[in-house]
Amino acid sequence: MSTWDRFVDTFFNGKVMAKYLPDILSGMVVTIELAVLIVITGLGAGLALALIRSLAIRPLNWLIVFTVDLFRALPPLVIIVLIYFGLPYADLSFSGFVSTWLSLALVLMAFSEEIFWAGITSVHKGQWEASRSTGLSFGQTLMNVVLPQALRLTIPPLTNRTIAITKGTALGTVVAVTEILGEASSAMSNSYNPSPLMMGAAAYLVLFLPVVVLARRLERKFAWKR
């Protein structure tokens, strides 16, 4: 066997790949589920916090800012480990899936709150005044006039951040979540062959590369007009 053949036989072994393809596919399903849950709950919570912050209730805002700082400063893996390995000591046990979901959703919440808030504050004061002068209430102005402009402003930084955090689903493998990397790793140790890992890597690209390319387009479309 030539070196090349040996290389292919090791890293792209057809038999091993065929055998473990179903595992990788089921890992993809878990990754997608996890990612969708993280994006929906993380962005939802982030937007909710930003809206609450706009009410300008002092003690509440301090709490929000501290929470945001906390989850921006802590590495996601540390949060996952804390929830998964730490909370059971307080008789609170979460599965690896839930631990990963919670952790990354909290991180995305923190980052997106910061971005949503920056977007809201960057809408010109005159927009508030014009709207309020025609009789719209604070809430109506926020929802109809300010938020639509703020969201447009936040799309580029938000998509990038969302992708970066959602990729973190791979961290779930540390707490035994059977997502792509988890499935690939266990298949690799069962088969003594790295081919499943290569498949796993490809699976991530299949899932995330289109999103990255789409984000690049969005970024251009919503680029700041200077």
Binding site: K167, T169, A170, L181, A201
Partner: peptide, 21 residues
């Protein structure tokens, strides 16, 4: 774009557990 799409942990495992093969 490749590295923006690729989770760093997967890259790390690929190097750590894949290269020895």
């Amino acid at each position: 774009d490749f590295f923006r799409a690729f989770p760093p942990l997967v890259l790390l495992i690929l190097l750590f557990a894949g290269l020895p093969f």
